[in-house]
Design a protein around this nucleic acid. Sequence first.
DNA 1: GAGTGTGAAAACATTCACAGCT
DNA 2: AGCTGTGAATGTTTTCACACTC
Lengths: 221, 221
Amino acid sequence: MLLDCALVKENSNIPPATVKRLPLYLQCLEQIDNETSGISSKKLAEIAKVNDAQVRRDLSYLGTLGTRGVGYDISTLRNQLQLELGLVEGWSAIIIGVGNLGSALAHYGGFQDRGFGVVGLFDDDPKKINKQIAGLVVKPISEMKSVCEKYNVAIGIIATPGKVAQDIADQLIQCNIKSILNFAPVLLKNTPDVQIRSVDLSQELQILSYYLDRPVLKAVK
Amino acid sequence: MLLDCALVKENSNIPPATVKRLPLYLQCLEQIDNETSGISSKKLAEIAKVNDAQVRRDLSYLGTLGTRGVGYDISTLRNQLQLELGLVEGWSAIIIGVGNLGSALAHYGGFQDRGFGVVGLFDDDPKKINKQIAGLVVKPISEMKSVCEKYNVAIGIIATPGKVAQDIADQLIQCNIKSILNFAPVLLKNTPDVQIRSVDLSQELQILSYYLDRPVLKAVK
DNA sequence: GAGTGTGAAAACATTCACAGCT
DNA sequence: AGCTGTGAATGTTTTCACACTC
């Protein structure tokens, strides 16, 4: 007999502002000791440094997870967050560019722990090809396509210099990759159906700079 | 005679959403060839991938910079953006933790170019102390305070493992640092008057993961 | 009593659309 | 004619406040 289930494309339609906070909540739960099994929105809000109504509203998009008068069960909450974020699918990722930043990313334990397997490292510098980093052998970029097909890679992480980043992005799209995380300080052209997120380290500093206290010499009539 | 100016604490009060886009505009301007001297909000919007009314509204917070019927003068715009973001002050920064990520940050040219001078690298691993990276000698963390005082350091960049990040943050605050850019995957306690921005690499991936196309097995009654 | 889930209000952000300047 | 600067309209996000459940 068939299971009482159906394969449907979930159109959960969670607001973007909420999606950005879900990984944060997940991280908060990890910081809680293992003895506690429940948590209130108030407590979680305190750890995540957001408003408690925010927490309740955000979590309510995932369904009715809490118990009135009691709170949320931590392990249910964690499972639901992981499910909603697609972390149980076990996506494969590759990293292109194994300079310092690429190596840092390859070593970064947080990925494997959180459902992302790095299955390939690529670089076109002959000095780097065949080097072993974090248990993987660096391969030339020409082999990217076959690795992507073999492991059904979903995510490409660009850690190359800016000059070549757009070219790499184009190649990743050729490899049928649907998500790109870009660390190169350039604006990648966007392509329909491909999600691109960019992390620009110097932009982060510039934002901080704005909020640094400074007197300003201002013209006064 | 005195200049027709006064030293006032500017309370420019630019909305946070706009502040986040200012570095983006600055980057767009850098990508334009040197021959062109003017740009319209429409063109800039295209490069930055935002709406053109957005560009005009954002820039209008910096003052009346454009010329109706003509557009914006690129060099005026750049100067004004740099001024507003506080990039002409030449803030000094230090990096704590010189593993792969810290090294990547130390080598990252984008900082020096954009008004941030990295004046110190710190680590407590004896194997790393005294190593030279990107023209700087790695020093033990115990020397942080004296370097901060000497160079009047404004920004601390944490690139350590998560375990020690909070401890380092506390020490940075002791050093009178007012802005922290944290790359360790932990939530730092916040302190009044100290700006903390965290970049969590794995959170970025998790957000991407949400938007990856996936069918979801959903219970159906 | 404690704490969720959620209408309704308030705050914030984006976009439209056009008057006004060059 | 072309393009800015900005009221007004719309859309999104946050927060309040409270009915409801345990």
